[in-house]
Nucleic acid binder design. Structure first.
Lengths: 340, 340
DNA sequence: CTGAAAGCGCTTACAG
DNA sequence: CTGAAAGCGCTTACAG
């Protein structure tokens, strides 16, 4: 099905003028036919539509957007869709965006080889960007260009808008809970963090350790090789073998906690009877396993709501592009399920 | 931080002419400064950038795209990001798209209230659309407009390009496997399907039942209330209680199989010792639980590769917009892990 | 180093 | 019912 020869558009694509010529009408009439506008005879409309079809005509979104404004496009930057955290957040953002009639461009910096390019393209296609920048925030903000940005869970000081996650209160509640249920020898199953020195506890890990120590515990600290289920399982297996008295595993996140759960099962260690397991994040995933996972949950709907709110304000100029006025905090809270 | 008063752009947004006026230069000079082009003095560049900053100038992606073509934008339509199947597919598509320098607009019809609108907006913003249309394919193709479409796992006959999933061979392999390991009383844990009558087995379910019967089994068929983990767990619990001899649960998908796994654990039924559990899809999720999930896996990277391939061909005119030339088939294959 | 001209593809008034 | 004109915001030659 080769295309007719002479087309004016770039890339050999037909433009409205090609259709007009083929149908023997003006471009305005093509617009009327293609956009279902009134003021055109049935016969003409049919002739135009036939010509459009034959030329495989598709209106340029740029031409259209230029004149009619076009829908807002929200850029969403996630770290790795294969990690269940990202899609849950994306789902929340998508829902809010769709409710406003915005479209969402998605870029994944954990997935693509050339993440710099992805970030740059995202900035070019978006009216506003929401997402995780992590340790490379300064560099990537540069690449995003001049769009307003709402950073989620920023690793450092907030350079633009920001929604911060704060687990500190929930960590205290969790520590109290562990005391109450009689835990004696807790273990913090930590993940490496780019923000601290190698071998050091992550910010979350430190929070957990401090809360436990304040209650008289002498918590063990295990630094897994990565924030993955496999690494969580390996770390747990080793720790259970080396320290028989461990009776609670507090993981850096839910995915690692799932690994801990699997390791316990393989070691024939009952959860929560002999060892309690706790994650952080509150992923739906934690409700699909048995025992269901106790976790410090963050309400991603709330995170998304704040982020979109801030983005909106920055976009319409009612909020500045950085500073305290574009900062929000969302606190984790303890979700006691079966595993602890 | 209120904006300066008189701005020519729509929505009060500054245009290149506003910046030019503020900096006392021509629009070409603004382009040079903003796009880091050569042929501009340092002093002028700084003055222009300052003016741009002060006016909160952001170049219109429409204006830019119109003249320089702009990156291709791929529309991806998923059903529900909260279902782990969607993000795994999205991850594969995103990776391929990014490698080509395309951006991806994502719409989720299972999530948004006004899915019709989402579909329509997606069509308007995309050069090509890949995705699940399900039972509403005819209607939604209409809404997508004239963009090329590659439908994934179409429910009916392919109306445009299509990547079909074919579990039939893997189902036979699975049935043989069950015979080999000594399963006697298998149960098909099915999900409701819009394509068949209420209470009827889904296409997948029928495939499983047929393969089992051909091997002399008298398989039970349980239709869960939904294709969810909870429904899978409920269906499994009820079946285990009613039919003590059931020694294998073949679920409609992995998520339901996870529910079956949880139900077995709660009932104190060992997997795979007493009951074997099998899912369909091959989600990563199945490797995070213990026992790991045996499943009929479909390679989503392969699905994505075919889909992007077809999309590309339809876009550049080397492939027609529908018909056998734009159909691909991806087969499931049995992935034996711990649960069966 | 800087600016005047042309044009990307479309839609929105307006005139016939 | 149909078409000539103007303009959306930008960049790419080209001229000075």
């Amino acid at each position: 099905m080769a295309r007719p020869a002479r087309l004016s558009g770039a890339g050999g694509r037909a433009t409205i003028l090609d259709v007009a010529a083929a149908a023997g009408v003006s471009r305005q009439t093509v617009t009327r036919a293609v956009n279902d506008l009134p003021g055109i005879s049935v016969a003409t409309r049919q002739r135009v539509l036939a010509a459009a079809e034959a030329l495989d005509y598709r209106p340029s979104r740029f031409g259209r957007g230029l004149v009619s404004g076009g829908a807002h496009q929200l850029g969403l930057l996630v770290d790795d869709l294969r990690n269940p955290y990202s899609p849950e957040l994306a789902a929340s953002v998508l829902r809010l965006a769709a409710a406003r009639g915005w479209t969402v461009v998605l870029a994944d910096v954990g997935l693509t080889g050339d993440s710099d390019r992805s970030v740059q393209d995202l900035g070019a296609q978006s009216d506003v960007v929401i997402g995780y920048l992590g340790a490379r925030a300064p560099e990537w903000l540069e690449r995003l260009g001049s769009v307003p940005v709402v950073e989620l869970d920023p690793a450092g000081p907030a350079l633009r808008g920001a929604v911060r996650l704060d687990p500190s209160e929930a960590v205290e509640t969790l520590a109290d809970h562990l005391v109450t249920v009689g835990v004696k020898h807790p273990l913090v199953l930590d993940a490496p963090s780019a923000a601290v020195g190698a071998g050091q506890p992550s910010a979350r890990g430190q929070l957990l350790l401090d809360a436990l120590r304040r209650r008289g515990y002498l918590p063990r600290h295990v630094l897994a090789g990565a924030a993955s289920a496999d690494a969580g399982a390996a770390g747990t297996s080793a720790a259970l073998a080396a320290h028989r008295r461990v009776d609670a595993v507090l993981a850096f996140n839910d995915v690692m906690a799932l690994g801990a759960l699997a390791a316990c099962r393989r070691a024939g260690v009952d959860v929560p009877e002999r060892v309690r397991v706790v994650g952080i994040d509150g992923l739906t995933l934690g409700t699909l396993v048995a025992p269901t996972l106790t976790t410090l949950a963050v309400d991603l709907d709330e995170v998304a709501r704040h982020a979109v709110d801030l983005a909106l304000g920055m976009l319409d100029g009612s909020l500045p592009r950085s500073g305290d006025a574009v900062q929000r905090v969302v606190r984790h809270r303890l979700l006691v399920r079966e595993s602890a």
